[in-house]
Amino acid sequence: GPIITTQVTIPKDLAGSIIGKGGQRIKQIRHESGASIKIDEPLEGSEDRIITITGTQDQIQNAQYLLQNSVKQY
Rank of each mutant, 00 (worst) to 15 (best):
R49A: 13
L67C: 02
K21V: 09
G22Y: 11
K38Y: 05
Q68R: 08
Q68V: 02
H31I: 07
K12T: 13
G20K: 13
I4P: 04
H31K: 08
I19F: 07
K12N: 06
E47H: 04
E32S: 10
I19Y: 08
P11K: 05
S46A: 09
I53F: 09
I4D: 10
I51Q: 01
L67W: 03
T5G: 00
Q64W: 01
S70E: 13
Q64T: 10
E44H: 14
E44Y: 03
D40I: 04
I51M: 08
K21S: 13
T54H: 09
G22R: 14
G22A: 07
D48P: 04
I10F: 08
E41R: 07
L66G: 04
I60H: 02
K38C: 12
V8M: 14
R49Y: 14
S33L: 02
Q57G: 09
V8C: 03
D58H: 08
S46D: 14
I3W: 01
Q64V: 02
T52A: 11
L43M: 11
S36N: 02
P11H: 02
D48E: 11
E41G: 08
R30C: 12
I4T: 10
R25E: 14
L14P: 14
K38R: 11
I18A: 13
I18F: 08
I37T: 02
Q59S: 12
G1L: 03
N62D: 10
I29K: 02
V71Q: 12
Q73V: 12
Q59A: 09
I29C: 09
R25W: 11
I26G: 06
H31F: 04
K27V: 10
V71F: 05
G55Q: 00
E47P: 03
K12G: 04
I51F: 15
P42Y: 05
N62A: 12
I50M: 15
Q24W: 13
Q64C: 02
R25L: 11
I50R: 06
E41Q: 10
Q24G: 09
Q7V: 03
N69Y: 03
I4Q: 01
I3T: 15
I37N: 00
G22E: 14
I60F: 01
N62E: 15
L67F: 09
I53C: 03
Q28P: 03
I50D: 04
Y65R: 13
L66I: 07
L14N: 08
G34P: 01
T6H: 03
I53D: 00
S17R: 10
V71R: 10
S46N: 11
P2C: 05
V8S: 02
K38Q: 06
S46W: 02
A15C: 02
I4N: 14
T6P: 00
N69S: 15
Q73F: 12
Y65N: 15
E47K: 05
I10E: 04
S36I: 13
Q24D: 15
Q61S: 12
Q59G: 03
T52Y: 07
S33P: 00
I3Q: 04
V8Q: 06
S17F: 12
L67I: 15
N69L: 07
Q28M: 12
D48G: 09
I4W: 00
G34H: 07
K12A: 10
I4H: 07
K21D: 15
P2W: 04
Q68N: 15
N62R: 13
D58Q: 08
I19M: 13
Q73E: 12
T54L: 03
Q64G: 01
E44I: 12
Y74L: 15
I19L: 10
D40E: 15
E44C: 06
I4C: 06
I26R: 07
E32A: 05
Q68C: 02
E41T: 05
N62Q: 07
K12H: 12
G34L: 04
T56I: 03
T54K: 11
G16F: 06
T6S: 06
P42Q: 09
I37G: 00
E44D: 04
E44W: 03
K72L: 03
K72R: 11
I53H: 00
D13Q: 09
E41V: 07
D48C: 07
